[in-house]
Simulated assay, not measured.
Amino acid sequence: MKVALIGTTGYGGIELVRILHNHPVFHIQSIHSTRGDAPIWKEYPHLFDINHQSLETINPEKIAQEADMVFFATPSGVSSQLAAQFEPYDLQVIDLSGDLRLKNQEDYVKWYKHEPAQQQLINKAVYGLTEWNREHVENAKWISNPGCYSTASLLGLAPIVKENWIVPSSVIIDAKSGTSGAGRKPTRMNMMAEMSENFKIYKVNEHQHIPEIEQQLNIWNKGMKTITFSTHLLPISRGIMATIYVQLNNEKTLHEIYDLYQQSYENSPFVRIRPLGQFPAVKEVAGSNYCDIGLHLDERTGRLTIVSVIDNLMKGAAGQAVQNANVMNGLDEKTGIDFIPMYP
């Protein structure tokens, strides 16, 4: 299948280039950016003598004639405008931005501060958390790829929320990310002088992934309430750790909870439930599409701690996008992304 990549100069876009370079089914037909015509290796010198393609302008009609699938790796507020131009064409579309995730346009304006996408496009897009929405992904033409924090948080919460084993108002998520999650555009927040030997909280209770997480939790369990969600920047390039605290609403043993998670993800090759007493670290999933989850029950308080780690550019962005593309097209979901994590 021929694939067009739009927004290739960002970290999510260039990660798609890395993955699809060796994908056995998906072939990169063209790469596009608003920056104009230039060889991609001039933007990313590590691609010199590997990828000889040049960035092209975005011409929906030409792309539709040449490609079968389009990945949008453009920023929020951009994807919604571009995606509308592709609706008339018979293409598969996977959007890595947040523009098609929230079903309520008013929520999008409130949290993202942009004009929302057209409602018909939002309704058309299937939320691509494959592990819990596989049937819809299999039959989708348009996919809204989940956010990075949302992916780690929702995979960590799903089994216990769906079984209604927690107090609905008790969810607290303490999440940390590497600086690549802030994008490639230089800002004070991601400067080396600011982040080296530093650790900072940001967007306190205001992160745009909050309504996305709450929306999905309410789909799984209508009784779920609002969450407390804090985000922090780590002095590393990539990786997310979400440490999640929930109060159980009845007496369950840690072994019962562990068995629930094992059973929930037994057919999900990219979710690994760590043995009891072990907890994952971000380096242990770096460069891979894995989500590793560790569990601990405090018997004194009845509070469950869930530790969920992913690579924000892989399972949190490009890797999950290709996983969704695989499932959409009837391929083994591991095709082209079955990477062993990088270590050290």
Rank of each mutant, 00 (worst) to 15 (best):
L5S: 10
I6M: 11
L16Q: 01
R18D: 08
R18T: 05
H21F: 09
H21M: 10
H21R: 14
H23D: 12
S30R: 05
I31P: 03
P45N: 04
F48V: 09
E56P: 00
Q65D: 14
L82C: 07
A83Q: 10
A84M: 15
S97H: 15
R101K: 14
N104A: 11
H114W: 10
E115Q: 14
A117W: 13
I122W: 03
G128D: 09
T130Q: 09
E131P: 00
N133R: 09
R134T: 11
N139E: 04
A140P: 04
A140K: 03
K141H: 04
C148Q: 08
A158K: 02
V161R: 00
N164G: 14
W165Y: 12
S170W: 05
A175P: 00
S177Q: 13
G181M: 12
M191F: 09
E197H: 14
N198I: 02
N198D: 08
I201G: 05
E206F: 05
N218M: 06
N221M: 12
G223E: 12
K225N: 09
T226D: 11
I227P: 04
S230Q: 07
P235A: 03
I236C: 02
R238S: 08
A242N: 08
Y245T: 10
Y245V: 08
N250V: 03
T253S: 10
E266H: 15
S268D: 02
R272K: 13
I273Q: 01
I273W: 03
G277D: 02
S288E: 02
D292T: 00
E299Q: 13
R300A: 11
T305M: 05
V307H: 06
D311C: 05
D311K: 05
M314L: 10
A318V: 03
N324M: 11
E333R: 13
K334W: 06
Y343A: 04
